Amino acid sequence: MFGPEGPGLRELAVQVLSSVDRGYDLLAPKFDHTPFRTPDSVLDATASALRRTGPFDAGLDLCCGTGAGVGVLRRVCRGSVTGVDFSAGMLAVARERTRAAGPPVAWVRADARALPFRPVFDLVVSFGAFGHFLPRELPGLFAQVRSVLRPGGRFVFPVVAPPRPGSLEYVMLLGFDAVMRVRNAVWRPPFVMYYRAFRFGAVRRELARAGFRVELQVLPEFGRRRDGSPRVRLIVAERPEGEGVGISHPCP
């Protein structure tokens, strides 16, 4: 799973026994050499889908990490691009890697559950971050995203079809989540990372409850499963036109 440039077992153990933000501060220098980074194939397919409906003006990468999703925004946004994350270490790596690679990016340290922005974005994207939010936190998270979008703005993220029950991948993810639950029951601070907590049906319902108009787009680059269902979908949640805009709450 990890190449020679990735973290060792001891480094991963220290990370997972830390808080989420401290853990990612420690992992940041080697994060792009782990399987936790969103693959370029998913980023490229998302950018291609967004080009068909764009261009957009201002874009925000929610929980940006080391900035992989910012690269997508730079391809489809003709205005400003912002990355927000709560890990200072991840932001430092992102800032360094994009310093000499095109137009400047605004990097903001903040909690996604309390975004410090007015409704100024036309596009919000996020890649691989939702396992850090418990199901009960999704309504507040989606409300925050909606509050920083202009009317007509879109919240877009890819969703991979879940593994079939009984498959090796299913068993591995089930085991990982079980280990995390045991760890959080006996160790503080908690480290929230659950691969099976972000359920497709529940996500659609919570987006609709938050006031989004939700549609699904198939990413054809990844083909279909044996039952004909797509392997990867893009969720496109639009804040309807004709609404007034409110002011989001600043970070504490």
Rank of each mutant, 00 (worst) to 15 (best):
P4G: 02
E5H: 11
A13Y: 03
S19P: 01
S19M: 02
S19A: 12
D21E: 15
Y24R: 02
A28Q: 02
H33Y: 14
H33W: 10
T38L: 01
P39H: 15
A45H: 03
A47N: 11
T53S: 14
T53R: 13
G59T: 11
C63E: 03
G71V: 12
R74A: 06
R75Y: 05
R78D: 13
R78L: 06
S80H: 12
G83P: 09
V84W: 12
M90E: 09
A101M: 02
A106L: 15
W107L: 13
D111H: 05
A112E: 13
R113F: 10
A114M: 04
V120Q: 15
V120Y: 10
A129W: 01
H132R: 12
R136C: 11
E137G: 00
E137P: 04
E137T: 03
P139H: 05
A143T: 06
Q144C: 04
S147A: 15
L149T: 14
R150S: 05
P158F: 07
A161W: 04
R164G: 02
E169D: 15
E169S: 14
M172A: 15
L174W: 11
V179H: 00
R181T: 03
R183Q: 00
W187Y: 02
R199K: 07
R199Q: 09
G201W: 06
R205T: 11
E206I: 08
A208V: 11
G211K: 01
F212D: 01
E215S: 11
E215H: 07
E215F: 06
L216D: 07
L216T: 14
F222T: 03
R225F: 05
R233G: 09
L234V: 07
I235Y: 13
I235F: 10
V236F: 14
R239K: 11
G242Q: 07
V245A: 14
I247G: 06
